[in-house]
């Protein structure tokens, strides 16, 4: 598994300061902490969607960011799959075209993830001709997951993908997430503030609080010492 190493500093206009250093080569790493602790910002920085004032980010041998050398690899060149909290499907495109959006732009990628297999694993077959506005919350999130997988990512980033769903749906979608992990073995960073989700999915937990890493270790140990905010 490629090792992700991240060390960034950023002061936001509101005054919030983030300085976090983390390393992981686990299959699923959870970024855990209360709202406003900087979890999502870390994810955006890894994806290249937010450029920190100072930082170094590497995945395996690849350098994605090195501000000492004024180097910043663009988001579209990082081969990261991003699943947003509120799916962010393109409303003017059918499910089929949403799914293929990234694949059409990343053909020739080494990671071979077949559309037919994604459609099978995430059970999207009946949805292909529909538009996002005609999908339920759970269906939207499954399509968003499929869309990011089909862009051939080397790293999967998930920003509280279950937070907008009700409890029954959470349980169903988490099963799909487990299937994705088992099927493609993509290194995954999973942002959450739910201890239950983290316990079920993650091998390793990094705890963030007020912009700093306060703890890091195997899931059971880290969760035991940290009192879950929810």
């Amino acid at each position: 598994m490629n090792r992700l190493s991240f060390h960034c500093r950023h002061r936001f206009p509101g005054g919030f300061a983030l300085e976090a250093a983390l390393e992981t080569s686990a299959q699923v790493t959870a970024l855990f902490g209360p709202s406003g602790s900087g979890k999502t910002s870390v994810l955006y920085m890894i994806a290249g969607l937010l450029r920190p004032q100072w930082g170094v980010i590497r995945l395996g041998e690849q350098v994605w960011l090195d501000s000492n050398k004024d180097f910043h690899l663009k988001a579209e060149q990082r081969h990261v799959g991003f699943v947003f909290q509120d799916h962010l499907l393109f409303p003017h495109l059918s499910v089929q075209r949403n799914l293929m959006y990234g694949r059409r732009r990343r053909h020739g990628r080494s990671v071979a993830i077949e559309p037919s297999r994604v459609i099978e694993v995430l059970e999207l077959g009946d949805l292909l001709a529909r538009y996002p506005r005609n999908l339920s919350g759970g269906e939207k999130q499954r399509v968003a997951l499929g869309r990011s997988l089909l862009s051939g990512p080397e790293l999967l980033l998930m920003d509280e993908p279950l937070a907008a769903l009700d409890q029954g749906l959470k349980d169903r979608i988490i099963t799909y997430l487990e299937r994705v992990v088992a099927e493609w073995h993509l290194p995954t960073i999973y942002v959450s503030h739910s201890a239950a989700e983290v316990r079920r999915l993650a091998d390793r937990v990094i705890v963030l609080d007020q912009g700093h890493v306060t703890q890091s270790g195997p899931t059971d140990e880290a969760l035991l010492e940290n009192h879950s905010p929810r």
Binding site: A47, G48, L49, A75, E76, H79, F84, L88, Y101, R105
Partner: peptide, 27 residues
């Protein structure tokens, strides 16, 4: 148009101009 839709497009491999043409402008 939610600016994060452009972010989603870029995370899927679209450059800024590509994201503008295929997401923001059509919407």
């Amino acid at each position: 148009v939610d600016p994060r839709l452009e972010m989603a497009a870029r995370s899927l491999g679209a450059g800024r101009l590509d994201a503008f043409w295929t997401v923001t402008l059509p919407l």
